[in-house]
Amino acid sequence: MMSKQGAALQTYNNELVKCIEELCSKRDEVNRQVQQEEEEKARLQHDIRILTEKLSRVNESLARRLASRAELDRTIAETEAAYMKILESSQALLSVLKKETGNLARATDPRGVHKDH
């Protein structure tokens, strides 16, 4: 009777040891996966930090360039407006000069002088 119980106990013991070994093996596998993912997480956080710094630098540069472009747009618009005023003034001046030249030509035309006599 005792030897039968002893044999059963031995069987249970063997199975328990086997189960514990399987659980330990599974735990080792999960632990290995955890380490891999922790390493990947660290790598990704490092990449994010680098990309965040790059993004910040690009945003600063972009803001400066946008301000620069806006300033250039304003300067171009003001210059073009001033140039158009110069063109209009030149046109007006030319008209006045042509009129005056015409008047002078009539006044100094000998035929015009003879007509007055």
Rank of each mutant, 00 (worst) to 15 (best):
M1A: 15
M1E: 11
M2A: 09
G6E: 02
L9R: 00
L9Q: 02
Q10R: 04
Q10V: 03
Q10H: 01
T11V: 03
Y12W: 01
N13A: 09
E15H: 06
E15P: 00
L16S: 06
L16Q: 05
I20E: 13
E21F: 03
C24S: 07
S25W: 05
K26D: 07
K26P: 01
K26W: 03
D28M: 15
E29K: 04
N31L: 09
Q35F: 09
E37C: 13
E39F: 11
E40Q: 14
K41D: 03
R43Q: 15
H46L: 14
R49P: 01
K54R: 13
K54L: 09
S56F: 04
R57I: 06
R57Y: 07
V58T: 07
N59A: 08
S61W: 10
S61R: 12
L62D: 00
A63Y: 03
R64H: 10
R64Q: 14
R64M: 13
L66S: 05
A70V: 03
R74C: 10
E78T: 01
T79Y: 03
A81C: 02
Y83D: 07
M84L: 10
K85P: 00
I86W: 05
I86P: 00
I86H: 04
E88Q: 11
S89H: 15
S90R: 12
Q91M: 11
L93P: 02
L94D: 01
V96I: 07
V96D: 07
K99S: 11
T101W: 08
G102Q: 03
N103Y: 14
N103H: 12
L104E: 12
A105P: 00
A107H: 11
T108E: 10
R111E: 14
K115Y: 05
